[in-house]
Simulated scan of single mutants.
Amino acid sequence: MPISIWLDLLLTVLVVSAAVTDLAIRKIPNLFLLLAWCAVISLHLADTAPLPAIGTALGGALVGFALFLPLYVVRGMAAGDVKLMSTVGLFLGPAEAVQACIFTWCAGGIMALVMILFTRRWSDAYANLRSLLLPMVRIGPTVQAASLTRPSVGSMPYGLAIAVTTLWLLAQRYFPTISL
């Protein structure tokens, strides 16, 4: 069986496992991610051209990390979500990692709106979004402590959004007629 199929199978197992644990306990275990990194590097080392394959994989991991890190910095997601997207990028490579990040942001936004709708926390969500975005457009000193005192609208299992997006991208590889 080609290495690409093994990588896709492992990625499928990873994102489904991560989504299930994120839904159940709101954490993505580092052990899942470490095992995935070891598996990807090992599979690429068994490839006929290991260095370019490993370079592409690391580039994808860097893209996933770089595009999700700002959301962690502003407390928009947990570190496990950033590490999961970096690991997904390791499997997908840089170009597909960009796609995965953009589609995951969209899926996550839809999930957040649904959660806010069902919990009826519109005013808290608006205040949190305002305190998050307002310092970015203001010039001059701002008070960051005010944004820390707002009540959370609730934690979101972002691993689910990452999994749905990743599975959709993988499905497009094998069933090209699937599209938006």
Results as ranks from 00 to 15, higher is better:
residue 68 F to H: 03
residue 73 V to D: 03
residue 21 T to D: 04
residue 13 V to S: 09
residue 26 R to T: 12
residue 6 W to K: 07
residue 80 G to R: 04
residue 132 L to P: 01
residue 38 C to S: 15
residue 101 C to E: 00
residue 131 S to R: 08
residue 102 I to G: 00
residue 147 S to L: 12
residue 160 L to D: 09
residue 138 R to W: 00
residue 131 S to G: 06
residue 180 L to V: 15
residue 148 L to V: 02
residue 126 Y to V: 14
residue 171 A to H: 00
residue 162 I to C: 02
residue 144 Q to L: 14
residue 128 N to H: 10
residue 129 L to M: 12
residue 27 K to M: 15
residue 126 Y to E: 10
residue 180 L to A: 14
residue 41 I to V: 15
residue 20 V to E: 02
residue 110 I to D: 01
residue 78 A to D: 05
residue 95 A to L: 13
residue 40 V to Q: 02
residue 139 I to H: 13
residue 113 L to T: 02
residue 109 G to V: 07
residue 33 L to S: 06
residue 114 V to S: 05
residue 174 Y to E: 07
residue 41 I to R: 10
residue 45 L to I: 14
residue 142 T to E: 13
residue 61 A to H: 04
residue 130 R to S: 11
residue 28 I to N: 08
residue 161 A to L: 04
residue 166 T to K: 07
residue 10 L to V: 02
residue 144 Q to F: 00
residue 164 V to P: 01
residue 51 L to A: 13
residue 97 A to S: 11
residue 139 I to Q: 12
residue 68 F to I: 06
residue 36 A to M: 04
residue 141 P to C: 12
residue 43 L to Y: 01
residue 97 A to Y: 07
residue 20 V to Y: 09
residue 87 T to F: 07
residue 96 E to Y: 00
residue 41 I to P: 03
residue 149 T to R: 05
residue 107 A to N: 01
residue 37 W to A: 13
residue 23 L to T: 11
residue 4 S to P: 04
residue 75 R to K: 14
residue 101 C to R: 08
residue 97 A to P: 00
residue 115 M to T: 03
residue 121 R to Y: 03
residue 7 L to Y: 01
residue 83 K to H: 04
residue 139 I to P: 08
residue 59 G to W: 03
residue 158 Y to N: 01
